[in-house]
Structures are given as structure tokens and as C-alpha cells.
């Protein structure tokens, strides 16, 4: 464990806490894409198949349970909670995310570290996580103004993989047989997708203005 990875995990955790805060405090999920949340649920379920077989550390197991639990809880809330689901606007959350699932799974069948059940599902979860934010970013562009908590949620979610990139650079120079090119390439794509959001977030922060994404 290195400081970059720990910072990344904490930033990821903060993004989830901000999202839970928004949904539970405001009893509203306006501005949140249910499709992105469903994709994250698939990402964590596909990636943590070894949850009960490989014990790495208490930290590792606890964080996996938190990530799986929170993503499924948010999806449940947005679909079934009688108050929250009323604020879900399916007319703006129209990204056909099943194409992302199919495409990433196909890619994982061809590009993986080893052709085994777990490795293919692991690669699938890495590719899917890289594009999982797309429905959310499209929704924000469509809905124009972004409320503070949603903006902070996306900001932290984008920043966490940026810390992981620093972690991979660090591990590349400090560990001899470290090769995580699947994670690295996907992580770069994932972080790049947030580039314009980071730009508009910084501009709104500098001008102390409301975050607005150009449609």
C-alpha cells in the first residue's frame, strides 16, 4: 500500500459518502444517473468475485464490502424508495448503457491477462469502470446546472482514478515484476473522460459561480 493508492481509495470513499449524503439528506436523486450507478454495481460485483476466496487484508475486504453495498443501496433507493424514486428523471437518463456492458465484456474476452473466468471478469470490470461515468456526464450536460453535492460526487469520483495512476507509476518504479497495463490504460481513459468536467468545475470554482456544463 502506498500513499497514492490510499489517497485514491479515500477519495473514492468520499465520493460515495457524498452521494449517499445527497440521496439520504435531500431524499432526492435529481441529477444522478441510475445507469451509472447500475454500471458501478456490475463493476464491483464482477471485480470482487474473490471477495470470499482471497483474503488480503481487513482493509481490502471492508472496502470491497462498502463499495458493493453502497452501489447496490443507491440503485435500490433510486428504483424502489418511494420518495427518492420520484425524483429520478428517466427522460434525461437515456444513455443506452447495456451497449457499454456488452462492448466491455466482448473486449475482455479478447484482451485480458489470462483466459480464466476470474481474469476475464476482472478485465471486464476494469474496462466497464472506465466508461461507467458516461451516462452521468451526459445527464449533467443535458440537465445544464449541477447541484453542489452532485458536482462534488463526480469530482471525487474522477480524482480517485487519477491518484491510482500515480500509484501505478510509483509501483512500476519500486516493484520489479509490476505490470498492470490493463489497469493503467483503462485508468488513463477513465480519467481523461473527466477532463472537460474538471475544466468546467475549476472555472466555476475560480469565478465562484454555479457549475454549468455547456449542452
Amino acid at each position: 500500500m502506498n500513499i497514492f493508492r490510499f489517497a485514491g481509495d479515500m477519495t473514492h470513499l468520499i465520493s460515495i459518502l457524498v452521494l449517499l449524503l445527497k440521496v439520504y439528506a435531500t431524499k432526492s436523486c435529481s441529477g444522478i444517473s441510475l445507469k451509472t450507478q447500475e454500471l458501478y454495481g456490475i463493476v464491483f460485483l464482477a471485480r470482487y468475485l474473490d471477495l470470499f476466496t482471497d483474503f488480503i487484508s481487513v482493509y481490502n475486504t471492508v472496502m470491497k464490502l462498502v463499495f458493493i453495498g453502497s452501489s447496490l443501496a443507491i440503485v435500490w433507493c433510486m428504483r424502489f424508495h418511494r420518495v427518492v424514486k420520484r425524483s429520478y428523471d428517466r427522460d434525461v437518463d437515456t444513455f443506452r448503457h447495456y451497449f457499454l456492458v456488452g462492448g466491455c465484456f466482448l473486449l475482455a474476452l479478447f484482451v485480458h491477462e489470462k483466459f480464466s473466468f476470474r481474469e476475464v471478469f476482472w478485465a471486464f470490470s476494469i474496462y466497464l469502470e472506465a466508461v461507467a461515468i458516461l451516462p452521468q456526464l451526459i445527464l449533467l450536460q443535458r440537465s445544464g446546472n449541477v447541484d453542489n453535492l452532485t458536482g462534488q460526487y463526480v469530482l471525487f469520483l474522477g480524482a480517485y482514478r487519477g491518484f491510482y495512476i500515480l500509484n501505478w507509476i510509483y509501483r512500476y518504479f519500486t516493484e520489479d515484476q509490476f505490470s498492470r497495463w490493463i489497469s493503467c490504460v483503462s485508468g488513463l481513459v477513465q480519467t481523461a473522460l473527466y477532463a472537460d468536467f474538471f475544466y468546467y468545475y475549476f472555472i466555476s470554482w475560480k469565478n465562484n459561480a454555479k457549475l454549468k456544463l455547456p449542452a
Partner: peptide
Amino acid sequence: VDADSVKDEL
């Protein structure tokens, strides 16, 4: 390293 290497990252 065996490609089924234990994924120690989240």
C-alpha cells in the same frame, strides 16, 4: 508472475 495474480488493489 501467474496472471491469476491476486489483485491486491481495489
